[in-house]
Computed example of a mutant assay.
Amino acid sequence: MNFKHNLKVLISKEDIEKGIVSLADQINQKYKDEQVSLIAIMNGSVFFFADLARKLNMPIKMDTIVVSSYSGTESTREIKFHKEITKPIVTNQNVIIIEDIIDTGQTLTAVYEYLQSLNPKSLEIVTLADKVGCHNDFKYEYKSIFQVPNKFVVGYGFEIDDLYRQLDQIYSVED
């Protein structure tokens, strides 16, 4: 494949699969015999969301939120909701927010507070990756499968201007 950027593999597809299986096992144990509503933050979490959802053993309902705060590799620091929840699956439900990465924490804060205002029974955050040292003031608990360095990452849903999402591994952008 011809890449516009110099990419270096950070996390292999095998390690991604193992991490998702481990997270799914934890969720399956925690919510055994209960229904869960999964809310994916699109578009970055699309692959993580689909792979995780297929490994869950309880009844699930799903919806998506579309939020943006990036232009290219830079955060605009402005959170824009392009799509909010369209189904009544949050109020009095166990809700899990599925996000690709926690970077500054601003997007997750906005989404968490929006969903909290809809009065869920419980509200949890899971992320595929956690960018080290970028969100020290993030105040909500979350579970993350991987830690990545403070570099721009692509693949497995991560992107630069919508490029590279389809790659089955996670890469750092080296140029």
Rank of each mutant, 00 (worst) to 15 (best):
M1S: 02
N2T: 04
N2D: 07
N2K: 08
H5F: 05
N6R: 12
V9L: 01
E14I: 04
D15S: 03
G19R: 10
G19L: 13
V21W: 13
S22V: 13
L23A: 01
A24Q: 08
Q26E: 12
Q26K: 15
N28C: 11
Y31I: 04
K32C: 07
E34S: 07
E34W: 00
L38Y: 02
N43A: 06
S45T: 15
S45L: 05
V46E: 05
F48M: 12
A50G: 00
D51N: 09
D51S: 02
L52Q: 12
A53L: 04
I60M: 05
K61C: 06
T64H: 05
V66A: 00
V66I: 12
Y70I: 06
G72F: 06
E74N: 12
S75G: 13
R77C: 12
I79M: 00
F81T: 15
F81M: 15
K83P: 11
E84Y: 01
I85E: 05
I85C: 04
P88G: 13
I89E: 06
V90N: 02
V90S: 04
N92A: 05
Q93I: 07
I96H: 00
I97W: 02
I97H: 02
I98N: 10
D100F: 06
I101H: 00
Q106N: 11
T107G: 10
L115W: 01
L115E: 02
S117E: 12
S117C: 06
S117M: 03
L118P: 06
S122W: 02
A129L: 12
V132L: 14
C134Q: 15
C134D: 12
N136P: 09
Y142C: 15
Y142L: 11
K143D: 11
K143T: 13
S144Y: 13
S144A: 13
F146P: 07
F146T: 02
F152Q: 08
V153S: 10
G155A: 12
I160T: 12
D161C: 09
D162G: 04
Y164L: 03
R165N: 01
R165P: 03
L167S: 00
D168G: 13
I170T: 07
V173N: 03
V173S: 05
D175A: 12
